[in-house]
Amino acid sequence: MNGGAARALLDVRDLKVGLPTRRGPLAILNGVDLHVKEGEVLGVVGESGAGKSITGLAVIGLLEPPARIDGGEVWFDGARIDGLSGDELRRIRGARIGVIFQDPLTSLNPLYTIGFQLTETIRTHMDLGADAAEKRAVELLDEVGIPAAASRLNAYPHEFSGGMRQRVVIALALCANPRLIIADEPTTALDVSIQAQIIGVLKRLCREHGTAVMLITHDMGVIAETADRVAVMYAGRVIEDGTVAEVVRNASHPYSHGLMGSIPTIGARIGRLPQIRGAMPRVGAVPAGCAFAPRCPDVRDLCRAERPVMMDGKATSAACWQYSPRWSDAAAATGGAAADG
């Protein structure tokens, strides 16, 4: 499954991000492997603090110092882009990789009209005159579904609703026809009814333009509706990777399994929503073996001793020892789940 037939547009290999502290480096990402193929929508899910957003920021070189890439490689469109200079990365951002952030209310500069912000971005990346850039800005606003786009160019961000602002943000991300869009929780700050619209716009435009999307979210509903493939992250690593249908219905990793189990279904009467016991280990306190071992219902000594790599699971690939030939030899752990407290 990993590294499929179609060439990967974005290929992240063993990416490590750390935060230098007085007591030594603190690992935030412990070797993330993921890839996005041309035109594909990859959903990245996981609970808060799993490293989803950090992965997105690391790819485009926008980590907030002192956080920094400590290892691994990022390949985009056949070229390695980690370690590029600030200016070289800047030319990729916005031009070939578009970015959408969580909160549309704060993503736009309040002091400039949206027309200015659009043409500014267009002219930074494309060789267009003022008139041509303005024409393109109107087209983009039209495409993201802003009514009377031409007359809205001179409007300021505060004159738009949250949903409309997120449409403007999408238009800004699409300014230079990027090959990939990294959307970091694009709908979290919005009304539920608006969320569906925004996801619809994003999906439609990316299909029309053949743009690949790395969709970071913790909303499984959004993933199920939008993504082709899912990468599940836990404690700074990708622990499962597969098609949406397989991950939702037939997850291989016990964590993903628990995650899918905790999605409420309408109509089903259940007393208490199932939940995964315990909490994700804090950054810097990730255990040596499998990070999920302390919470795993099926933990064995092997899990605590060694970190599992990605292997073929049921229908997806998962970082779990139970799909290794060594699983049957490993004795069931003494004490069972949550023994480490």
């Binding site: 485009i60 926008l62 600030g86 800047r90 030319r91 990729i92 951002r93 916005g94 031009a95 970015v99 952030f101 909160d103 704060t106 993503s107 736009l108 500069n109 309040p110 400039y112 500014e120 971005t121 930074t124 990346h125 943000v169 800004l172 991300a173 300014c175």
Partner: peptide, 20 residues
């Protein structure tokens, strides 16, 4: 956030620092 987003849009350092 809007400065972060301006960086993500790939604007030049000068445009970000002085314009925005």
């Amino acid at each position: 956030d809007y400065i972060k987003f301006a960086r993500a849009r790939g604007l030049s350092r000068r445009a970000i620092n002085f314009g925005h």
